[in-house]
Design a binder for these strands. Sequence first.
DNA 1: GATGAAATGATTACTTA
DNA 2: TAAGTAATCATTTCATC
Lengths: 152, 152
Amino acid sequence: MEKLDHLDRRLLKILQRDCARSLEDLGADVGLSRNAVWRRVRALEEAGIIRARVGLLDPEKLGLGLTVFMLIKAGRHSPDWLERFSQVTRDMPEILGVYRMTGELDYMIRARVADVGAYDRLYRDLISRIDLHDVSASFVMEEIKDTTALPL
Amino acid sequence: MEKLDHLDRRLLKILQRDCARSLEDLGADVGLSRNAVWRRVRALEEAGIIRARVGLLDPEKLGLGLTVFMLIKAGRHSPDWLERFSQVTRDMPEILGVYRMTGELDYMIRARVADVGAYDRLYRDLISRIDLHDVSASFVMEEIKDTTALPL
DNA sequence: GATGAAATGATTACTTA
DNA sequence: TAAGTAATCATTTCATC
């Protein structure tokens, strides 16, 4: 896919906030026929620019009121260790994000759990599966902002 | 809305990975007629358990290859300061997440930018708008996992 | 929870600029 | 190459059982 033009950007801007809008509706917003919109959206999907359309659930209502960030030092730094760490964290559904970082801390984990007790179980579970040198947790008291919408 | 049953959970599990599936399709997966699925999904939306349906875009393909976490100490702790901090960060589209934390650091910001230069502009922009005592940045070298799907 | 009708929306083929 | 028109096909929505 070639460069995005102004209309592509406007469509993406809308779709990354609400992907349930009809083509007609989108067309009215950006000033195109529903077909022109359809073709553009399909091209954006095929190019992988739109990676997925997903439902965003309310964590509070599902009993997942606590977000925790875990700051991790690895201890070991072999490729095997990283491979295992990746596998283990990908397999744990409470873990939503795992990032290898620059700076003092080696890795950061973002997780969603019910409460501090559930975090403790997650922590024990994790360290039983993989060797970690140092782990410290920071809990989120307030989510001031949290969006999946990228700047366009 | 009353408690979620097994079928609700199965539907949510599917929808939070792909919300473009047809009702028929979903029904085949969970063993329900399209209409039974329709009613359940609508109830989940009305209860706010499904908060939104959004398109997830590929940050790399949009020239936003760098994720940065900013660890922030506030300096001031007045309600006014917090109000202004919230407003300022909500207004900056590169900033995707802002969290008030327990522990030593007061706030954490998650942002997406093109490169280190773009981060520097974001940083300057932020500190020009709000008084911050201490800011340190950690860049993401590798995204091992990053999902919007909650554990069900 | 199921059935089926009516309304809406998505997709295709074709035409135009 | 990109967009519009119109016909067709699929899906959603809703009344009724």
